[in-house]
């Protein structure tokens, strides 16, 4: 099939950037979206133009690196997959596809479609862990956890940190990402010791990074490639206020 691509090009973070239009032809429906980009990039290099920069790594939907906003939806038109899992059979011959980077103050553009998502790392550094050192831990089976709780924790823990939730939210809110980690550790017995300080610190960092507020539109949940539920956001709100009211930190 033949396609028209409108792609955001921006030389670096200081550059103003703008859209460029490209034509690609003979695209196989079996190609992944990123493979179509590979073809385009080979085409660009062969005609002495800079290839389009985009983040990608595992190309099997788990590393969370790929991050394209395609025709108005993070990770493209299909639900519950990442961009690298999107295949060209989801498009038709003659389509025009607009590709943009994630847009958020907390995710500044580095180059073309590459954005800086280190804000997520800083939020995890604020408390997304259990503070235990290597060794000296109890035997694994000394902490019984019901199947139900383990599943609930796992549902939240499948987050790949891609940032599609932020990209889709009209407020560029990171609540789904943060609440997934808070939830995972709030339901598990291992997370109880630092339960209060964790949520307090993670929310404070989230705010400081410049993400917006959650207005419960549910767009994050709708585009999440791992289908993480906004129930986690409700839980985080609960955790946050319980912590704020009862913790001894003034």
């Amino acid at each position: 099939m033949n396609l028209t691509l409108k792609v955001w090009r921006q030389k670096n973070s200081a550059d103003k950037g703008g859209f460029e239009t490209y034509q690609v032809s003979n695209i196989s429906p079996d190609m992944s979206f990123l493979e179509m980009f590979d073809v385009l990039n080979e085409q660009l290099v062969n005609s002495d133009q800079d290839p389009i920069h985009f983040d990608h790594d595992c190309r099997e939907g788990i590393c969370g690196m790929c991050s394209l906003y395609i025709n108005g939806k993070p990770h493209g038109p299909k639900d519950a997959i990442t961009t690298c899992q999107l295949h060209m059979r989801s498009f038709s011959d003659g389509d025009t596809i607009v590709v943009e980077p994630w847009r958020a103050k907390a995710f500044p553009v580095v180059k073309d479609l590459v954005v800086d998502r280190t804000a997520f790392d800083r939020i995890i550094q604020a408390g997304g862990y259990v503070s235990i050192n290597t060794g000296g831990v109890p035997d694994a089976n000394e902490i019984p956890i019901s199947k139900e709780v383990a599943n609930e924790a796992m549902d939240a823990a499948t987050c790949i940190g891609c940032g599609a939730c932020v990209a889709a939210c009209k407020n560029a809110s990171a609540m789904l990402f943060v609440s997934a980690k808070v939830s995972q550790l709030a339901v598990l017995p291992q997370g109880q010791v630092e339960r209060k300080s964790r949520v307090e610190n993670m929310v404070a960092t989230m705010d400081a990074e410049g993400f917006g507020a959650c207005t419960n539109t549910g767009a994050c949940e709708a585009v999440c490639p791992k289908e993480i539920s906004i129930t986690n956001i409700a839980r985080m709100n609960r955790e946050y206020f319980q912590a704020k009211i009862s913790s001894k930190k003034i």
């Binding site: 235990i132 831990v137 109890p138 694994a140 383990a150 291992q190």
Partner: peptide, 10 residues
């Protein structure tokens, strides 16, 4: 043991 203590949901 280490991973369970970290909160890995096996």
């Amino acid at each position: 043991d280490q991973c369970v203590a970290q909160g890995v949901p096996f």
